[in-house]
């Protein structure tokens, strides 16, 4: 699959396979389009060329109606949580269920409470999103994301901006939910230790393509300097510390540009 924004290529002949029932991590430096990849999988963006297959269906070629039907089997946890600000936590989780089913209210209530119990927020069901902490909002969004028992769930930077306790809770939830609900999970993140602790398989993306893949252990032992720089968090290396610029001394001595 290839994708570009205007004249700027984001992915060139990108190729990856997400194993069913596993937690797959997609890692890479900031700004290489990891969130864009999730939007491509979800059909919110269309690639310039290539295929994105989900349950045997090529997402970019689906009609709007068909795409919405396919999306009932997938879910996404947004970086911001993206809770509906005019609804309580309970109504946020109930939203997708009441939109897509004609279940009676008491059944919906039971389903919502089960999901909220799974993320530890049953007691916060009546709170509004602005009353939640960042970690709670992320967990409420997670409860909403699993409301319809999707087959695929995509996590966009689930650990960003979380304190260590919230981060630990979310790490544990992603793993537990994946196992308990037999989900297929894609975690996009650049938090190396957290991702390594839960992922079954990891892709490292840079330079518009996959530059490395394997189990967490295989990537730790990888001999590529770029992957080593990313894994060890080194400030300089194949990914330069400095943004491309003219010679520093010449720049300082230049009085007029």
């Amino acid at each position: 699959m290839s994708f570009s924004r205007g004249d700027r290529p984001i992915y060139t002949d990108m190729n990856l396979r997400i194993p069913k029932g596993k937690v797959t991590a997609i890692m890479g430096p900031s700004g290489i389009g990891k969130t864009t990849l999730l939007r491509l999988i979800g059909g919110q963006l269309k690639p310039d060329s290539g295929q994105i297959l989900f349950q045997g269906q090529n997402i970019p070629t689906l009609s709007r109606k068909h795409l919405y039907r396919v999306r009932e089997d997938m879910s996404m946890l947004f970086q911001s949580g993206a809770l509906f600000t005019d609804m309580s936590v309970f109504d946020n989780v109930a939203f997708a269920i009441s939109e897509h089913t004609k279940l009676p209210k008491d059944i919906i209530r039971t389903m919502v409470l089960l999901k909220l119990e799974a993320v530890g927020l049953r007691g916060a069901r009546d709170l509004m999103p602005h009353e939640l902490s960042g970690g709670m909002a992320r967990r409420a969004a997670l409860a909403r994301a699993i409301a319809l028992d999707p087959k695929l769930i995509m996590y966009d930077e689930p650990f960003a901006g979380q304190d260590p306790i919230s981060m630990g809770v979310i790490v544990r939830l992603i793993r537990q939910l994946n196992n308990a609900l037999n989900l297929t999970s894609i975690v996009v993140s650049h938090d190396v230790p957290e991702v390594m602790s839960i992922a079954d398989y990891v892709y490292v993306v840079a330079d518009q393509r996959v530059i490395g893949q394997g189990t967490p252990q295989q990537l730790q032992d990888h001999d590529s300097p770029l992957i080593a720089q990313f894994m060890q968090g080194l400030p300089d290396g194949p990914v330069p510390f400095h943004f491309q610029a003219d010679d520093f001394h010449a720049d300082l001595l230049e009085t007029k540009r």
């Binding site: 939007r39 879910s75 947004f78």
Partner: peptide
């Protein structure tokens, strides 16, 4: 505009709910 900037419309789309209709 705020629903767009806080990704509420995108999340609606990903929940297979058309924001244009909803």
């Amino acid at each position: 505009g705020l629903m767009r900037s806080t990704e509420q419309l995108s999340s609606m789309e990903m929940m297979a709910v058309d924001p244009l209709r909803r």
